[in-house]
């Protein structure tokens, strides 16, 4: 299964400049683990030491925040797009 992962500018130095990366897996946890194993510099940006998602990193499957879909267990399917975005002060303020 091929999943496209969109990498935010702030993490691209750890992915050799790549803005999108293909990954395989059936859960968000598997996708991110593969990303971290292929690009070790990304690991501390994705996860806290206890293996949970970095608090300032939002991960979306097809623009839906995975924290509300089961977290690292959130399922992904062939053709899904995973987007990583830093948590920042947003709009509407």
């Amino acid at each position: 299964m091929s999943i496209t992962v969109r990498i935010p500018t702030v993490l691209r130095s750890a992915t050799g400049g790549a803005a999108t990366i293909s990954a395989t897996g059936s859960t968000i946890g598997e996708i991110l683990a593969q990303l971290a194993s292929d690009h070790p510099g990304v690991q501390p940006q994705l996860f806290n030491e206890d293996g949970t998602l970095h608090k300032f990193l939002n991960v979306y499957v097809n623009d839906d925040d995975v924290r509300y879909l089961g977290g690292l267990q959130a399922p992904v399917a062939d053709g899904d797009e995973v987007t990583l975005l830093p948590a920042v002060a947003g709009g509407f303020a």
Partner: peptide
């Protein structure tokens, strides 16, 4: 998070 390009690292979140 995609539009803010002045971000240096995730720690600026």
């Amino acid at each position: 998070g995609e539009m803010v390009d002045g971000l240096r690292s995730l720690e600026d979140g």
